[in-house]
Amino acid sequence: MAQIFRVERTKNFTVMSNHHFKNKNLTLKAKGLLSLMLSLPDDWNYNMQGLATLSRDGIDSVRSAIKELEHHGYVERHRLRNEYGFYGDTEYIIREVPLGEEND
């Protein structure tokens, strides 16, 4: 038997779907990164370097977790071009539940 000590949810908490937590195809690393990403503000600048600064994991670890989340449909990345046609920022689309699985 376990004792769980929960906090009052009046400030500094995140509400998210349990979908990714119950997905046995995801590693704990990917589940943790997605949870972290979902806890950040919508206007946060999602990029590999920024995500890596939020934990002890390095950029290679973040990159592999992002690729895993992409593979399973939780994250999409699109390289954006600037007005001169050069690659610039990367747009991130982050989903609590992958496309097509919203009603599962």
Score class of each variant (00 low, 15 high):
Gly100Phe: 09
Lys11Tyr: 08
Val7Arg: 03
Asp60Gly: 01
Asp104His: 13
Arg79Phe: 05
Tyr87Trp: 11
Arg77Pro: 00
Asp43Cys: 03
Phe21His: 11
Ala52Leu: 06
Leu26Met: 02
Phe21Asn: 15
Gln3Cys: 07
Ser39Arg: 03
Glu8Arg: 14
Met1Gly: 13
Arg9Asp: 04
Asn103Leu: 11
Met1Gln: 08
Lys29Leu: 11
Met1Thr: 03
Ser17Gly: 10
Phe21Gly: 10
Pro98Ile: 02
Thr14Trp: 00
Val15Ala: 13
Pro41Asp: 01
Met48Ala: 10
His78Met: 03
Asn25Tyr: 12
Ser64Gly: 00
Phe21Ala: 12
Ile59Cys: 02
Met1Glu: 12
His71Glu: 09
Glu70Pro: 04
Glu83Tyr: 10
Asn82Thr: 08
Phe13Asp: 04
Gly58Arg: 06
Leu36Ala: 08
Glu83Phe: 05
Gly100Arg: 09
Leu26Asp: 00
Ala52Ile: 06
Phe21Thr: 07
Val15Tyr: 13
Glu83Cys: 07
Val97Thr: 12
Gly85Ser: 09
Gly32Glu: 01
Asn45Gly: 07
Lys31Ala: 12
Thr27Ile: 09
Val7Pro: 03
Met16Tyr: 12
His19Gly: 01
Ile4Arg: 04
Arg56Pro: 03
Ala65Ile: 03
His72Gln: 11
Ile4Glu: 03
Leu36Glu: 02
Val15Ile: 15
Lys11Val: 05
Thr10Leu: 11
Ser39Gly: 15
Asp42Phe: 07
Met37Cys: 04
Ala30Glu: 14
